[in-house]
């Protein structure tokens, strides 16, 4: 066997370290989260519609939180998918290289803005705007959060979709043109189907970005833990609940364990998204 250099061991342990971190996070989430199920059954926890953790007796039903997360994520996708895929197609197939040179750094900048700044912008400028156009009591709503999360997910979706479109060999485009296809026919009937696994991966990773986002939704989703009935009402997604309440729940209390259980569920959801994304990438469905 070939002798390994010390540097190889160092790099190997770096790689192992991240696996250990992932494992440690999962273990601690479940260790601190599971005790809640001694008091509330998992079914009542997930499907209960009242989240009154500080009441006496407390109620731990997280359905409003799950639905809030789903609603905002779906809303974010409605914003981000057409815009993101559209931009990716525009940049790869239509844009002049000069325009592309301008858009790319802008997108990178968009991706690097801290989420608290998105939240701030949402609170101060965007929410009052929403409040005014819909004439509602507060602008801090699921819609506000959806739109901002959609914008935040854009760079992820665009860059992954763009990579997958760019990687389509030009010989396939030529095949389409040579059969008398126009540019649009080529884009819609050749390029998009050929890039579909990359595009799906982009959507799923964008989704996972949206569902896990915390600071922005904490600031602009409104925070009401009720089952959402429309996009125009304040909601309280899972991440915002954890961030807002972790400080006020005494360590080891039921509330504390309940928050960990929410975190564990969130972890499983994003893990699921990532596994799905990888699966699509490999299988090239």
């Amino acid at each position: 066997m070939k002798k390994r250099k010390p540097i190889e061991y160092l790099l190997l342990s770096c790689a192992l370290l991240s696996i250990i971190f992932l494992f440690a996070i999962a273990v601690s989430l479940f260790k601190e989260g599971l005790p809640i199920f001694k008091v509330v059954s998992p079914v009542k926890f997930i499907f209960g519609s009242h989240w009154y953790p500080a009441h006496d007796p407390p109620e731990f039903g997280i359905l409003p939180l799950i639905l809030a997360s789903l609603l905002i994520t779906i809303g974010a996708l409605i914003v981000a998918v057409p815009l993101g895929i559209g931009s990716a197609i525009y940049m790869t197939e239509l844009a002049h290289p000069k325009i592309k040179e301008i858009i790319k750094p802008v997108l990178e900048l968009l991706a690097s803005i801290p989420s608290v700044i998105y939240g701030f912008f949402g609170m101060v400028i965007f929410a009052p705007f929403i409040q005014r156009i819909f004439n509602i009591p507060t602008g801090l709503t699921a819609l506000t959060a959806s739109i901002l999360l959609g914008i935040m997910a854009l760079p992820t979706i665009i860059s992954i979709a763009e990579d997958s479109i760019t990687s389509i060999p030009s010989s396939i485009r030529e095949a389409s043109y040579a059969l008398g296809a126009t540019k649009w026919e080529t884009i819609i009937q050749t390029i998009i189907p050929a890039a579909r696994s990359g595009i799906l991966t982009a959507i799923i990773l964008g989704m996972s970005r949206a569902i896990g986002e915390t600071m922005t939704v904490l600031m602009i989703a409104g925070g009401a833990a009720v089952i959402p009935k429309s996009f125009l009402q304040p909601v309280r997604p899972m991440t915002a609940t954890i961030a807002a309440e972790m400080g006020e729940s005494p360590m080891g209390s039921l509330h504390f364990h309940a928050l960990f259980a929410i975190a564990a569920i969130l972890f499983l959801i994003t893990l699921g998204f990532n596994i799905l994304a990888n699966h699509i990438k490999e299988k090239r469905i």
């Binding site: 095949a175 389409s176 040579a178 050749t190």
Partner: peptide, 12 residues
């Protein structure tokens, strides 16, 4: 019509 140097079927 055109037939190219390397076969280029659509991934369909």
């Amino acid at each position: 019509g055109m037939v190219f140097q390397r076969p280029n079927p659509f991934p369909k």
